[in-house]
């Protein structure tokens, strides 16, 4: 009985630790991407397209760095959607296709928020 109780506690602690770690990672990535996205939009609005392009490249690199860990905690379809949107936004910015650029950046914001909200403990997620 004691062994069973201890193993239950160990599994519970590990599980909660994984859940907390997963949430913290997702929150950190979502906040960083969102901060970078906002900066890119500000630069694009101010006409600083070259700087905006550099920032998007940094965003892509940051995303690529975190992707292996994110793939262990999130469905891959959503992650790939984010990758595609970053690439699309970069291409649209380089070609200065304004409408498509802003569309891609807005969708990127929605995708990141969706990833974050999926990971959060909310009644909507439970039910």
């Amino acid at each position: 009985m004691k062994k069973r109780f201890v193993s239950m506690l160990v599994v519970l602690t590990l599980s909660l630790a994984i859940c907390l770690g997963s949430f913290l990672v997702m929150r950190h990535v979502a906040e960083e991407i969102e901060a970078m996205r906002t900066e890119v939009l500000r630069m694009a609005d101010a006409g600083e397209t070259e700087r905006a392009g550099e920032r998007i490249t940094q965003m892509a690199e940051m995303w690529e760095r975190h992707e292996p860990l994110l793939e262990a905690i999130s469905p891959h379809e959503t992650l790939h959607a984010v990758t595609e949107l970053i690439v699309e936004a970069d291409a649209d910015l380089a070609a200065w296709d304004r409408d498509d650029f802003y569309r891609a950046m807005n969708l990127l914001g929605v995708a990141i928020e969706h990833l974050y909200l999926e990971e959060r403990l909310r009644l909507e997620n439970i039910f």
Binding site: I18, E71, A72, I73, P75, H76
Partner: peptide
Amino acid sequence: VSTPLLHGILPVAA
């Protein structure tokens, strides 16, 4: 393959 392993293991742990 696109579903993380933890999505299977964690519910079983629960």
